[in-house]
Design a protein around this nucleic acid. Sequence first.
DNA 1: GGTTGACCTGGAGTGCGCTCCAGGTGGGAG
DNA 2: CTCCCACCTGGAGCGCACTCCAGGTCAACC
Lengths: 119, 119
Amino acid sequence: MSVYTPAEVVEETGFSLDTLRYYEKIGLLAPVDRNAAGQRRFSEEDLGWLGTIRCLRDTGMPIAQMLRFAELVRAGDHTIPDRIALLEEHDTRVRGQIDNLIERQRYIHSKISYYRSVL
Amino acid sequence: MSVYTPAEVVEETGFSLDTLRYYEKIGLLAPVDRNAAGQRRFSEEDLGWLGTIRCLRDTGMPIAQMLRFAELVRAGDHTIPDRIALLEEHDTRVRGQIDNLIERQRYIHSKISYYRSVL
DNA sequence: GGTTGACCTGGAGTGCGCTCCAGGTGGGAG
DNA sequence: CTCCCACCTGGAGCGCACTCCAGGTCAACC
């Protein structure tokens, strides 16, 4: 099972090192393994979790809610129904965002058309 | 030509009164007409502009860029090509947002499916 | 064995976009 | 006439999500 240095994780996840430390500090990331010198060595599992974080983050989930999700994950398999509920609720919001963006985009297009017609 | 009280504009645009004052203060909204007592009386035109602001805001345009757009509008008709360029650039970003959300949504769906399969 | 550079910590600072507050004015309802 | 309520101003404060900093450790390469 391979491990990753902070620099590798920054490279692969796109999170800054400061952000990774911040996520660990607030508990969004479980305490990361350390080498003898106290430097972080991320596991494959950490990488997977960071991928999930990236997805939730980029779809606008607030950190507080990601924290609740993280706690559910740590609490064990009996929380899977709760996790499903949380993700479905989030999915609804994402759908709302998409619909809203598409709607607003129509307005932008009409505005552009109008400006074109005036030229 | 009808005018609108602050309360009416809050009602119609969904912006808070503080936000409207803030927008005027930073110049996103041109100085609003006042009655004898110094209270704001918004014009139909203000309402239209606020609708545009709402759309740009809700599609994630930063205030700084909306300000540039506002300046273009105030500068006169010769800036219409610039406005088109600005809106098209923004439209590209909106499309990017939509595509990204759809992509991330797939991940969320697969996660939900996985959790369902484990139950 | 000296220098470089990746990493460490705790804590302060930043940028955005509001939001709230204190203290005050003016006009309409009872 | 008095009360209340909507509105005014300048300026301070807030919540979020980082981001930066000072000062230090360790390992590795020349």
